[in-house]
Design a protein around this nucleic acid. Structure first.
Length: 205
DNA sequence: GTTGCGATTGGCT
DNA sequence: GCCAATCGCAACC
């Protein structure tokens, strides 16, 4: 039987609880070329205005306003002048929590994922890294604000149906709150991205 | 108005 | 391992 979409209640919890629970879940994006499904293998939690590393730390702005809205929506941001990254909004309205989807394994329609990532040789590299994941899934600027819990959205998450092992450690590439262990991954999975500490990383409370 | 740099990636040394 | 690519945001002047 088909698995149901993850519920609003799933996302209304703290991002620190949601992030590990997203490991092993299935992200499907439906486009005119067909569906692609990814099994999430790596995530990071960002805790709104309590978290110096979060885009929401300094309060609402045109860029981050989706994070301040209801849980279960997609926050897509553009960075380094060329990449998109995707988060699920988490926590109660206004808390501005989010979980960054960092890496995944392609489990349905690898052919389409490969067409979107023509230079990648190995299957495990198709969605290895947050900007690679959005490319393989076909997620971009237009998907900002998508309600993942709506029955009609073209992007949704479902339970993978299995418990998975989980490890936690510091987040990749953040220059503030660099020691907080809010990155979660499936240990040993070849699609998990390489850890890189930010060259400007400092410790904050 | 100007400047510095980012929740990154891939190509080159 | 190092660094360029490339642009929007936000901090500063």
């Amino acid at each position: 039987m088909a698995r149901r979409r993850l519920t609003r209640a799933f996302f209304e919890r703290s991002p620190v609880d949601v992030a590990p629970d997203l490991l092993g879940t299935l992200l499907t994006t439906v486009s005119p070329e067909g569906p692609v499904t990814l099994r999430i293998t790596e995530t990071e939690a960002y805790c709104g205005q309590d978290d110096p590393a979060s885009h929401a730390y300094r309060g609402p702005s045109p860029r981050n306003e989706v994070m301040f809205g209801p849980a279960g929506h997609l926050y897509v941001y553009f960075t380094y002048g060329m990449h998109y990254c995707a988060n699920t909004v988490c926590g109660p309205d206004g808390a501005a929590g989010g979980v960054l989807l960092r890496a995944a394994e392609v489990v349905e329609n690898e052919a389409l994922a490969r067409a979107r990532r023509p230079k990648v040789a190995q299957a495990r590299g198709l969605a290895r890294g947050p900007a690679c994941l959005t490319l393989a899934a076909g997620i971009g600027r237009d998907d900002l604000g998508t309600d993942l819990c709506s029955a009609r959205s073209r992007i949704y998450l479902r339970s993978g149906g299995h418990d998975v092992p989980i490890e936690a450690g510091p987040r990749v590439g953040v220059s503030r709150a660099a020691e907080v262990p809010w990155r979660f991954w499936i240990p040993g999975d070849p699609t998990v991205s390489a850890y890189k500490r930010s060259p400007r990383a400092t410790i904050e409370s």
